[in-house]
Design a protein around this nucleic acid. Structure first.
Lengths: 222, 222
DNA sequence: CACAAAATCAAACGCTAGTTCGAAAATTGC
DNA sequence: GCAATTTTCGAACTAGCGTTTGATTTTGTG
């Protein structure tokens, strides 16, 4: 009788991946079922066997996008030793966030590009997931501040928005083959934790950092 | 006889403003000439008296968006006293950038949301403007680093991407009526310049203070 | 007021969108 | 290897798209 088997699941994922790429490149309205079908080696009508509408497709892309991120960051935090400092936790979360969104760039980018154009109910559903992700960060930051590691004068909500903004923006300019994810994560972590100013005109010989001299194509900004 | 008068210019601007808002909300393909026309209190066909295609419209929105930003930031830098420190220049540029993109949120957001979906020639034209804006920032940062104000170990291209990323992201969450632009700008500036860590405990008691102005020869910038 | 120029309108055009559905093909259990 | 089931197809439908065009209204000037 009825038996759920692999064939369907494989096609379903193939369609979803294709959708993420096409939504990323053409936006919500600009994406057509026929284009997705082409990308997934299918005909347009066949998509409806797996997803019952374009909205259900974009909804699935949006949800997977944020779920992948939450899982990666939670995983990285769980892998830390028990007594890890706030600094370590921030560092781990930043690296995991960056690695996740850059590795799943299709989903992250398409998500970012269509989130504002999607029917409101779909957006609201997705926003709830995103809020729960923000809460994870808020815990890390507040914890480190309560422990005295971070300046008491800093507003942790703004810090979170600052850091996540800078991280999320990387999908706009990061290109594989240039700087490594680790390189970017490390530099960004240093920046947010210690700042840009040279605090020690005297003991500046302390920082054991090697200068990086990788030629890079002009990066897009704004 | 023929006389160019204001009426046309007024309508033209009204259509452009409407287009920015609609492109922002619905993306490139999702925006229809009829919707723009409604928003501008016109009929769809009438738009073609002012702009000869949808592409010309989006092109005008994209260009105005980046031009407004460039003018604001250049203006703020020009208003600084001659010997202003790198710190002051970064602060002024950050504030001007933030203020500009949040004040012109319709243009900034629509620009961000459609830039990836627009015909390539339009995108390339706009990218050239954006590269010139990036160059302004690169000059500020490199100048301050050369003057010894910023850590020599920091990669200024990454710093620029970090800072502008965090700033640009504000359009996603900033809502008038909440925190003021000045408040956000000030906190962000402190963060990037001095970092999040509380240095008052162990680290050097040399300069935990914040000298607003550095006595220093005017670094060559721009 | 009159009338030419400027600005807007209403209707229509060809095209492509999301979606539906019965038929065809591929796959599976026995 | 066959019949039942799952999956895919292809054609069709309606709706709405950007754009064109000739007619119509509004505007500024003598």
């Amino acid at each position: 009788m009825a038996k759920k088997l692999a064939k369907s699941a494989v096609s379903q994922k193939r369609v979803l991946d294709a959708a993420a790429r096409i939504f990323r490149d053409y936006g919500y309205a600009g994406t057509t079922m026929r284009t997705i079908a082409d990308e997934a080696d299918l005909k347009a009508g066949s998509i409806y066997y797996h997803y019952k509408s374009k909205d259900e497709l974009i909804s699935a892309v949006l949800d997977l996008s944020i779920r992948l991120l939450i899982d990666d960051v939670k995983g990285a935090l769980a892998a830390l030793p028990e007594g890890a400092s706030g600094r370590d936790r921030v560092q781990a979360a930043m690296h995991a966030h960056l690695s996740s969104i850059l590795t799943n760039g299709d989903y992250t980018l398409s998500s970012r590009r269509v989130i504002g154009q999607v029917p409101e109910s779909i957006r609201n559903q997705n926003m709830r997931l995103r809020d729960s992700y923000a809460a994870i960060w808020q815990d890390i930051l507040k914890g480190a501040q309560a422990g005295g590691e971070f300046r008491a004068s800093a507003n942790m909500s703004l810090v979170r928005l600052f850091v996540l903004g800078a991280l999320n923006w990387t999908v706009e300019w990061f290109k594989p083959g240039g700087r490594s994810i680790e390189e970017v994560a490390s530099e960004f972590t240093d920046l947010i934790l210690d700042g840009l100013s040279d605090k020690s005109a005297a003991d500046s010989a302390v920082s054991p950092v090697k200068p990086k001299m990788r030629a890079q194509a002009p990066s897009r900004v704004v």
